[in-house]
Design a protein around this nucleic acid. Structure first.
Lengths: 246, 246
DNA sequence: GAGTAAATGTATACCAGGTGCAGAAATATC
DNA sequence: GATATTTCTGCACCTGGTATACATTTACTC
């Protein structure tokens, strides 16, 4: 099978790509709300009706590029080495993405990427679209956790929403800092430290959040990590040693 | 001051209420997407333009009723007894809301409430509006945590997104079960058990989510809570003793 | 209590996103 | 090459939301 995609299929792919590119180009140049779908259609040399046949809504002209990420965490968990805690797999994966400067982590400062990120974060309807991705990611991850680590259903759901929420928070924080001028490389160490702190929080819980007394960082199995870099811009140097590798 | 609201103010309030009631009535009867704002305006005997002066978007005709909940968690934390862990305050608050069958917990089965809940959950644009509330709640709670427990900024943000996400998951789960016919009273015990399980997870972390071996529930300071009711509908009887009261 | 300024409401026209429909054009199949 | 099936197009249309210009009401002042 799949000997040839067929002419029809290839044309569809080309049309899809043409519309998407025209859209992104126009959006980056004039802003999402300043460009109408009619303009996009015209630029892509397609009718408005055809555009909506390829993209169900205007937001999808942007969002379809991130569609893969909806099931990414679930796939990572499923593909992870058995016997390893899913959280460990997920943390390693996130750190890997930071290293790669994957835009999904908010740690990519290529001008194009940065502009696109800003546009999404500044456009309410696009943020709403992202939230739908989040919901989808939660569902998929919950199912993956249930299958691979046979976690009870509710526990899997609760874990999934926490994990997804935390990773988006980390990415949002990185993106915010980059838009304030920090370079990805300068931010990297801090991003790693923050990520490790966040995953440690996920693993060990919010017990630390007691009323007045500061946190007792001596968990059995936690290598006494001191408060990882969160205050301000100063990247606190090299990433500290992995601790909760299980 | 505030001796009298003034005629103008009173009239505004009455108009606001009239529009809102007309909207809810029509929406419940015919569905959100089946009713146009023009119809709502007509039913409320107001011009379309005036309607939009009171409610910036169609979704707000429904969402404004839940606006208070956006800052609820933050207020609870700020008003909580000092010296108590915020998580404890929040858990007690949530359990209290369950007892009261507050619709926000998904545990209210009055037909009107149930229909409204269903309508919201079944209407994508309304779900999106709820997500904006979630984001607002996260921001407010993060700030509250930062102030009251002087938690570092990042930690507060991470904790906030986890807490909000978990509470919405619990509420969603309850609402889902009620729409499958379960009564609020029948669901109550299970809802409490699930909530306690969820808050225990927040406090103690997802360490339990290891690869293969089941969870070691003997934390120092955790009174060895066994797996709280999550599997299916069976409410596992009475709520167990509070453990992590700090 | 009349007169005036400020707020509020209305009517109308308009724009943009999105859909239904009928027919034209292109592709696949024989 | 003829035909059946997709796909594309143009057009009309609906709805949410806004701009403008004008009418009405309320509040304030003398």
């Amino acid at each position: 099978m799949d000997g040839k995609p067929g002419l029809r299929e290839r044309k569809k792919q080309r049309t899809h790509a043409a519309i998407s590119e025209a859209a992104i180009t126009l959006f980056l140049e004039h802003g999402f709300n300043q460009v109408s779908v009619a303009q996009v259609a015209e630029a892509a040399e397609v009718s408005k009706r055809t555009l909506f046949a390829y993209f169900p809504a205007k937001e999808d002209l942007v969002a379809h590029r991130l569609a893969d990420h909806e099931t990414e965490l679930a796939r990572v968990v499923k593909a992870g080495p058995p016997g390893t805690a899913p959280l460990t797999t997920l943390r390693e994966h996130f750190l890997q993405r930071l290293r790669e400067r994957d835009p999904i982590t908010g740690l990519n400062d290529h001008p194009q990427v940065l502009r696109l990120t800003r546009m999404i974060l500044d456009t309410p309807s696009l943020v709403a679209r992202m939230d739908r991705f989040k919901t989808g990611a939660e569902r998929a991850l919950a199912q993956a956790l249930q299958e691979t680590a046979d976690t009870p259903e509710l526990t899997a759901r609760l874990a999934a929403v926490q994990i997804v929420a935390v990773q988006w928070a980390l990415a949002g924080d990185n993106a915010e800092r980059l838009t304030y001028g920090e370079s990805a490389d300068a931010r990297y160490a801090g991003a790693v430290a923050d990520a490790e702190h966040a995953f440690a929080l996920l693993e060990n819980g919010l017990r630390q959040l007691t009323g007045s007394d500061s946190w007792p960082s001596d968990q059995p199995g936690d290598a006494g990590r001191s408060s990882a870099g969160q205050s301000g811009r100063s990247a606190n140097g090299s990433a500290m040693s992995r601790s909760t590798l299980r």
